[in-house]
Amino acid sequence: MENLLEIKNLHVSVEGKEILKGIDLAIKKGEIHAIMGPNGSGKSTLASVIVGNSRFNVTQGSIFFNGKNLLEMKPEDRAREGIFLSFQYPVEIPGVSMVNFMRAAVNEHRKYRGEDPISASDFLKLMRDKREMLGIDSQLVNRSVNEGFSGGEKKKNEIFQMAMLNPKLSILDETDSGLDIDALRIVATGVNKLHTKDDAVIVITHYQRLLDYIKPDVVHVLYNGKIIKTAGPELALELEENGYESLINNAME
């Protein structure tokens, strides 16, 4: 089967400093990949580059998504091609209601596919269905985007947006950080409910904890801008036991 996401020899720098030093990664439909690694290893940079954050400079390599060259696309087009990032730090947007924000996003996706805008009643129904599916409070969607939300509410809201937009590739950037165990369960359950054999998920995390709920098919360890090890889900458990140190030492040799 063809790869959904294919990254080859990706080098990325920010303000002249090289952060990613040759990443190769291939993900197929239906797969869940975990990317682990210590702080500062480049995990969030990788996520940002995939969604098109212009702060990061791609100096070498390529990213293809569904056979299309992502690096030539604007962030909004990548999103409409089906890439979704659950932000590590979701942004507060005072004055823009969740309803208007989501309606704009949903309609932009539809427009991209050549469809008419969604009707008001269908849209409200869609909002309600997704909200109920994820067990999210109606209050959350009646407010301005993320404004005054707690850390947990912000992360739940990310998953809600993911449900609304129905992406082909979801990237969860430290979605577990700042979550208590109940919120973590809601978020993880949501991700599992949304995941099908037709889409893929990248889970970026420091800890095994989230991977107890979202079971990865493949685990990668990213260190100092390179993937130093790729293995099955047992790798995450190993890391939980022994930490990154021995792995890093092996890689250095």
């Binding site: 909004e76 999103a79 947007i93 996003a105 932009e108 991209y112 947006q161």
Partner: peptide
């Protein structure tokens, strides 16, 4: 940051600017 967040949801930059100015 808000602009990029909106773009990352599929809203074109110009439209995102518009929404933020109206807000």
């Amino acid at each position: 940051d808000a602009l990029f967040y909106m773009q990352a949801r599929g809203i074109p930059e110009e439209e995102a600017r518009m929404l933020l100015m109206v807000a």
